[in-house]
């Protein structure tokens, strides 16, 4: 068994309106950060995971994303693994 650090980044699906991102973008512009655009707001979930190897760790993290951590209708996710 190896111990992994897993980071799951969940973001609003590409192409979907993200009202939160829009509001943040608007606020940035009001602060004169005019160069900022296409702001999206997502979430970061991180945890430790005991798994047999890289493939096992990735497969289990992917399963977690599909079942709970992300909603496939509205969100995309990326998984980053590193050995702890």
């Amino acid at each position: 068994m190896k111990q992994y650090k897993v980071e799951v980044r969940v973001t609003p699906r590409e192409g979907l309106l993200d009202p939160q991102g829009k509001a943040v973008e608007h606020a940035l512009h009001q602060l004169d950060f005019s160069g900022a655009e296409r702001v999206r707001v997502g979430k970061l979930v991180h945890f430790l995971l005991h798994a047999d190897g890289d493939d096992d760790a990735r497969a289990r993290a992917d399963d977690m994303c599909r079942k709970l951590l992300a909603n496939p209708v509205t969100e995309d996710y990326t998984i980053t693994l590193s050995v702890d």
Partner: peptide, 17 residues
């Protein structure tokens, strides 16, 4: 019901926030 997949689609943040 949507999260459980018993109805299709999802309910997300109001556009007005």
């Amino acid at each position: 019901l949507c999260e459980a997949g018993m109805l299709p689609g999802a309910l997300v943040r109001n556009v007005s926030l």
